[in-house]
């Protein structure tokens, strides 16, 4: 079981990192081609812009997933400086994050379902909007998974602290 989790997390890392690179590079390439085409060939396509926007939304949320994974979301220094306060707060923080992400996933699920039900499609490219709308759901689930992982880690740290204090 443990091996399975480690493996899954490892593949997730690879996929997320590839996602980060792919989205940023594609977005840059699309907009750059657009600029060059407009300036030198007097040609401009709203389709490229729309595609770049959609890819950006993916890149934002994949970036947020990695920030979750690396536990590097922007936060203030906090009021707890010493153990065990720091450990307990981390535990609480992860718990709240996980709870909120569950809500986020639920919202996103409703959103995608709505989008599919309504058969919404993008104005220019005509692609099903579910392609972009699912960003929230997919990355929300990933963030929840990473947060859960951190949560267990946090629980472990609290447990180790008290074990250490006793012995």
């Amino acid at each position: 079981m443990k091996e399975f989790i480690t493996k899954t997390i490892k593949y997730l890392h690879i996929a997320e990192d590839a996602g980060r690179i792919f989205t940023i590079v594609t977005m840059t390439a699309l907009v750059f081609i657009q600029v060059v085409a407009r300036i030198f060939f007097k040609w401009s396509s709203p389709a490229m812009e729309e595609a770049a926007r959609f890819i950006m939304i993916w890149s934002i949320f994949i970036g947020a997933v990695v920030s979750t994974r690396e536990d590097s979301h922007i936060k203030m220094g906090g009021i707890f400086k010493r153990e065990p306060g720091v450990l307990w707060f981390e535990l609480l923080s992860k718990l709240v994050c996980f709870g909120f992400l569950c809500v986020f996933v639920y919202w996103s699920y409703e959103f995608v379902a709505h989008s599919l039900r309504r058969n919404m499609s993008s104005i220019v490219l005509g692609v099903p909007l579910a392609v972009v709308h699912s960003t929230f759901l997919v990355t929300g689930v990933l963030m929840a998974i990473h947060t859960l992982y951190h949560l267990f880690d946090s629980i472990g740290q609290v447990a180790r602290y008290y074990k250490g204090a006793r012995s």
């Binding site: 407009r38 401009s44 709203p46 812009e49 104005i123």
Partner: peptide
């Protein structure tokens, strides 16, 4: 929007977004 974009492109204008 798509309509005015096609309209101005029809008269040979360059359109920008």
């Amino acid at each position: 929007n798509p309509a005015d974009r096609l309209f101005f492109q029809e008269m040979g204008a360059q359109t920008v977004d």
